[in-house]
């Protein structure tokens, strides 16, 4: 499995990834999914990760990217 950018989140990420892969391949991709069964694990993983994103200043970068996306989307729409 791929590593997390925050080593302290690797363990919970691995548990989440395993859960997701099972759900995704056995339920979602077969059209048999009714709920996201891995949501509790994702929340756990996400709370570990968001601390790391804040500490590394990545939150701000993501916000900038969201703004930029709106701009680029205008371009994309104009082209097509």
């Amino acid at each position: 499995m791929s590593a997390s950018l925050a080593p302290e989140c690797n363990e919970v990420k691995e548990r989440y990834d395993s859960c997701f892969l099972k759900w995704y391949s056995e339920k979602f991709l077969r059209g048999n999914a009714s709920t996201d069964e891995c949501e509790p694990l994702f929340k756990e993983y996400r709370s570990c990760l968001s601390r790391a994103l804040k500490d590394k200043g990545i939150e701000n970068m993501l916000e900038e990217a969201r703004q930029d996306m709106k701009e680029n989307d205008t371009h994309h729409l104009r082209r097509s």
Binding site: S2, S4, Y24, F28, G31, T35, D36, L62
Partner: peptide, 29 residues
């Protein structure tokens, strides 16, 4: 979702899911 790392992408250091949402009605992820 499983493509990193691969022999053509050994320079990918990490991959994290920062958001994920499943819409049961449309069956979209």
């Amino acid at each position: 979702f499983l493509r990193y790392p691969n022999p053509y992408a050994t320079h990918v250091i990490s991959t994290d899911v920062i958001d994920r949402r499943f819409d049961a009605e449309t069956q979209r992820l």
